[in-house]
């Protein structure tokens, strides 16, 4: 029966038009990564230095990557899951442990990004890029002091002027945080309180948008939004009145990490590549080209001062300390979150 299930799964993938790449030849590396997430120059330089040919394929959601690794299970040497998917895939035995001896540059990673709940000791993951999901406010529309903290989102001035992410975990996380609970809380009573609190917020919500939330802020459709910092960075560049702040109750952080999936064929090459992108100067180039923050502490000094000192990209240590990474939840909690999400969106 198990065999049949796998066959079934494979057929599903076949019908979706997905096919695993051919097996790797000598000195090759198969990287499966988010689209537009690594500069071509970095890859070319790595090939020039090591002679290893790098084949890049891309995905645009954790779920798509997960389905392919889970159901096909071979053909890739490196993947870049987000924090909670690292936890999920590690729990399910879909990742291979790293050989830290081959990764001397791992020491460059800042302490905030090491040893997180989704991967204690970083046995499976090398932090690659990170950012936050927090509050952006149009101070022209609301004034400077209307919104400073999460609780302020419930103010009547924001009625019909708020944007939230179209993501159940992020939204429930706002409810948990404003009540003082951890973002990965799985206590059903706490989740219910968060739901009830969020239900009061619904009249304020004009739109749920995780695709391009900066548009609604820039066009003045909404006056405040919970958005990720990359979007806030662009919005702030176009309209300096749009401020990004880190509320005292806390906020969510995201972290994408390189991992070696089960079924990887080119382990030595994968480790060489990981150690290469962990070099401070390489990490700095990646961060600057891609526009995301690097967890590589040694890379910071290679970045231009105006980037390093921009709090939207690099919050102060005190601010960043209030951020929490989303971790994988157990099945029962996930179902609870899903139910509350459906109920939140009910009219």
């Amino acid at each position: 029966m198990m065999k049949n299930l796998h066959l079934l799964a494979l057929t599903v993938l076949f019908c979706l038009g997905l096919a695993a790449p051919l097996a790797a030849a000598d000195r090759e590396l198969y990287v499966y990564i988010w689209s537009e997430y690594i500069p071509e120059q970095v890859v070319a330089d790595f090939t020039k230095e090591t002679g290893i040919k790098v084949n890049i394929s891309t995905y645009d959601s954790n779920e798509a990557m997960y389905a392919k690794i889970k159901l096909v299970g071979k053909g890739y040497d490196l993947i870049v899951p987000s924090s909670y998917f690292v936890g999920l895939m590690r729990d399910q035995g879909l990742l291979l442990p790293l050989d830290k001896k081959q990764l001397p540059n791992m020491k460059n990673i800042g302490p905030k990004f090491i040893n997180q709940s989704f991967d204690p000791d970083n046995s499976y993951s090398v932090p690659y890029m990170w950012g936050s999901t927090s509050i952006a406010v149009n101070t022209d529309m609301l004034g400077k002091d209307t919104v400073r903290d999460l609780a302020d989102l419930w103010k009547p001035e924001l009625k019909g002027k708020l944007l939230l992410p179209n993501d159940s975990r992020e939204v429930i996380g706002i409810g948990l945080k404003v009540l003082g609970y951890p973002i990965n809380d799985s206590d059903p009573a706490h989740l219910e309180q968060a739901y009830l609190k969020l239900k009061e917020l619904m009249p304020s919500v004009r739109t749920f948008d995780s695709d391009s939330p900066k548009q609604a802020l820039l066009s003045g459709e909404v006056a405040a939004g919970v958005i990720w910092n990359g979007e806030a960075f662009i919005a702030n560049g176009e309209n300096p009145a749009i401020a990004y702040l880190y509320p005292k109750e806390g906020f969510s952080l995201w972290l994408d990490s390189f991992c070696i999936p089960k079924g990887a064929a080119n382990l030595a090459e994968a480790h060489l590549f990981l150690d290469y992108i962990l070099r401070p100067e390489v990490a700095a180039v990646i961060s600057q080209e891609m526009g995301y923050s690097s967890p590589n502490a040694a890379a910071l000094e290679h970045l231009p001062a105006e980037v390093r000192s921009n709090p939207i990209v690099y919050p102060t240590d005190a601010d960043a300390a209030r951020g929490e990474f989303l971790d994988n939840l157990d099945d029962a909690t996930n179902q609870l979150v899903e139910q509350y999400w459906l109920k939140l969106k009910e009219k």
Binding site: S61, E63, A64, N166, S168, V205, R206, T207, F208, D209, N334, Q335, E338, L342, K345, E346, K347
Partner: peptide, 23 residues
């Protein structure tokens, strides 16, 4: 989703979320 602000869940959203988010 795009014009209505994704404020209500439709059958299409639900099917997609079941496959991708809720697995």
């Amino acid at each position: 989703d795009v014009l209505g602000g994704a404020r209500s869940i439709l059958l299409g959203n639900y099917i997609r979320d079941q496959f991708l988010t809720s697995r």
